[in-house]
């Protein structure tokens, strides 16, 4: 459905571009997890999808039609649920929904139905008369989502939709997002929470410094680390033992003190590799092999240094 290709954007007076040759795809009925550290370019991408920024280069197309053209024809086709509580705190839930329904060009019965549908989808019926400023964090997140659902978009972009909510609200929101994809909607889910992406995403895009570092089905990303074996020894091996071990192992060996990182060949056995280490005098304290968590994939791609300092 959505095809972003070669997108390039630099903010005025910025030293480095916010997006560089940025490409991704989002499909109907699928949840695309968008992962990236602060300043990676996620919000800039969302601003482009919302029509708030004009790209310096590249294209955004929806079903072959340029986004600009689509927005002129159907501006509510892509809904955005921003990270901030983008509504009016002094208005009630219902008043907010009426305001944004009108802004979505809904009126009369269509507006009433859309409001009822959005309230039901987010279980906010009991809070329709409550002023938004008095809602809890979880309810505010739900209102943020309800507003995005008003115009029945074909695609929804959720930017950190669960920040600051309790586990129950998080579970509810994730379930709601799954339900949206199940109806055929394309969902882009940007989040820092790896476990959420791991729990709901069908495909994942990992971005940093405005570039796409890795894109693919979640299962594929997690399986890519299958040949890695990480070992921690009781004591470091001497130089001769390490040189001999490097010759024994069918793959590559990286050593940092007592930490050994093995990149085994496709058909090499991890059990045999561990046996080789013991045979060369290594006393294994801890060993990891097999499926990696998304967080480890993410950190290995984006490195672990602090960004906001």
């Amino acid at each position: 459905m959505l095809c972003v290709s070669g997108l390039h954007y630099r903010y005025p007076a910025a030293a480095t571009p916010a997006l560089v040759d940025f490409s991704l795809e989002a499909r109907r009925g699928e949840i695309l997890g968008l992962l990236g550290p602060n300043g990676a370019g996620k919000s800039t991408l969302v601003a482009h999808l919302a029509g708030l920024l004009q790209a310096d280069g590249g294209e955004i197309e929806v079903d072959g039609e340029s986004l600009a053209q689509l927005r002129r024809r159907a501006p509510t086709c892509i809904a955005i649920a921003p990270q901030d509580f983008a509504f009016y705190p002094m208005l009630s839930v219902a008043e907010n929904l009426r305001c944004f329904a009108a802004a979505s060009r809904l009126s009369g019965a269509a507006a009433r139905q859309a409001i009822a549908r959005a309230l039901a989808a987010t279980c906010l019926e009991d809070f329709a008369g409550t002023r938004a400023e008095y809602l809890s964090g979880g309810l505010k997140r739900r209102l943020n989502l309800a507003i995005a659902l008003l115009p029945t978009p074909e695609m929804i972009v959720l930017d950190e939709p669960t920040v600051g909510v309790d586990p129950q609200s998080r579970a509810f929101l994730l379930e709601t997002v799954r339900g949206l994809a199940a109806t055929g909607m394309a969902v882009i889910y940007a989040s820092h929470y790896m476990e959420e992406i791991e729990a709901i995403a069908d495909r994942v895009v990992i971005v940093d410094h405005g570039r796409v570092l890795r894109e693919g089905p979640l299962a594929e990303l997690l399986a890519q680390a299958r040949g890695q074996v990480e070992v921690q020894l009781e004591a470091p091996l001497d130089g001769d033992a390490l040189a001999a071990l490097a010759g024994d192992i069918d793959g590559q060996l990286k050593v940092t003190g007592v930490h050994l990182k093995l990149e085994l060949a496709a058909d090499a056995s991890p059990v045999a590799a561990l046996a080789c280490i013991e045979a060369r005098g290594g006393c294994i304290r801890d060993a990891r092999f097999g499926r990696h968590s998304l967080e480890r994939v993410f950190l290995s791609l984006t490195d672990t240094r602090l960004r906001d300092h």
Binding site: G51, T76, P82, Q83, A86, F87, A103, I147
Partner: peptide
């Protein structure tokens, strides 16, 4: 200022207002 900070203005613009 409130609308600008909480993203309401951007949301209205994104809705094509």
């Amino acid at each position: 200022v409130q609308e600008q900070h909480n993203g309401s203005l951007a949301r209205l613009a994104a809705l094509g207002v």
